[in-house]
Amino acid sequence: MDEGTQRAALETALESVAARIEAEKGHLTELDSAIGDADHGANLNRGFQAALEDANGEGDPGEFVKGVGMALVASVGGASGPLYGGSLVHASTEFEDGIDRAASVAFAESYLEKVKDRGKANVGDKTMVDAITPAVHTYKHAIEEEELSALAALTRAVDAAERGVRFTTVIRANKGRASYLGWRSVGHPDPGATSTLYILEALHETAAAYLDGTDEPLAEDAE
């Protein structure tokens, strides 16, 4: 896939993620009002709308992703700015030479590593890490061990993230504002894990529009 097509795919992906977050912002805020401070949907939506506005048609895929990350850093606020945006900026260097299956695994691992490091969170703390970790591990396994296509691997990663979100529902929060509730946080899915799942689902939708089952681009006019 040439750089122009990658670029177009990334722009479509951003539009898709932004649309999904906008559609779910009320739901995300509702989840956050149960165990947080009821602003996750609005904050994340503000961030992705800013990223859409900032996106210009220049630069390599890495620069594009970095630009999205910077927009999130500048406009989401609180701890989510560094977690969603800063991690994207950090991982964006993996796309400097374009996107292929190996680079996508490196990107995913780099993003996960930064989220865990920045948030000082691990699996089981009831955070976005509980959705990202199984998604990234499953994706890497599917690509490297099973040699599946990126699209097929992403399908599995989304399933894994969904199971991660369900896992956050039944456990007690150890990190973030929800941890203040202690046992009262049990029974509520983590809003950050949930928004992470929505982002992955939107990315999957874009991948399905651009790739066939062998990672070849669909028709030339896939845009």
Partner: peptide
Amino acid sequence: YEGDVMNFETAIELAEM
């Protein structure tokens, strides 16, 4: 505070980049 620490850490990383 979690937000302050994470934003400062990210800012330092960006400054170094």
